[in-house]
């Protein structure tokens, strides 16, 4: 499903340049649960962002379902993010002025789902993460664990095949962290492809495979 061929990412800052990824080649099959691990600054987030089509590689090829992603327009990439990717971030990234309900609704608004289908889906998702009672609350009125569960519900809004979770438990206490991992495992069992970044070996043990990154390279 995901195929990287010598992916490089170079950041330029003034005269200096920094190689965040230096030729990573990997494959992730549909339905896998993969954990990405590595020290801080090793390029984990960079890798995730490229997989999620939030960022583009400096060099190398990225095939998503056999199609080269290079050369797609902004709107085509937006459509891929909307339909194929569900993002969960370390800092939640919920919209502060929107309620839990509205946050989950947004990805569906971007793909033109009708009102009745939206309502059904949001209710279903809120039930799944156990927060139906909290639907009218804004992020600032929710705990970190609750916010991350809303973020996960939002990631699932359009039922994307791939879930990208970049350190989803990084800002959570261990109990909330475990809840999130359990939700992710459930999704994996339902057939979603899960790609997760974590520093925690115990959480990584839920996954099938671990990719170790070191200084922008795959370490074995």
């Amino acid at each position: 499903m995901i195929k990287f061929n010598k992916i490089k990412k170079i950041y330029h800052m003034g005269t200096q340049s920094l190689e965040a990824l230096s030729g990573v080649s990997l494959q992730i099959a549909a339905g896998e649960f993969v954990t990405v691990m590595g020290p801080s600054g090793s390029g984990k987030s960079t890798l995730m962002n490229i997989i999620g089509c939030l960022d583009t590689p400096t060099d190398g090829e990225y095939f998503l379902e056999g199609k080269n992603v290079a050369g797609l327009t902004f709107d085509q990439l937006a459509s891929i993010r909307n339909k194929m990717m569900g993002f969960v971030f370390q800092n939640f990234n919920l919209l502060p002025y929107a309620t839990a309900w509205e946050n989950i609704e947004l990805p569906m608004l971007f793909n033109g789902k009708n009102a009745r289908n939206r309502k059904e889906r949001i209710t279903e998702l809120l039930n799944e993460v156990g927060l139906l009672k909290w639907k009218e609350h804004r992020p600032s009125e929710l705990s970190g664990g609750q916010q991350q569960r809303i973020a996960l519900a939002r990631a699932l809004a359009n039922d994307p095949p791939i879930i990208l979770a970049d350190a989803p438990t990084g800002n959570l206490d261990s109990k909330s962290g475990v809840e999130i991992i359990e939700l992710l495992s459930r999704l994996w069992k339902k057939g979603h492809t899960i790609i997760m970044v974590t520093h925690d070996d115990r959480l990584a043990s839920h996954s099938q495979r671990i990719i170790h990154l070191f200084d922008g390279r795959e370490a074995d």
Binding site: F74, A78, S79, R81, N82, N93, P96, L106, F110
Partner: peptide, 14 residues
């Protein structure tokens, strides 16, 4: 940040 979030969720330029 909000603009970035919307883009991540699939907002088109329009």
């Amino acid at each position: 940040q909000e603009i970035g979030i919307k883009m991540a969720l699939g907002a088109k330029r329009r």
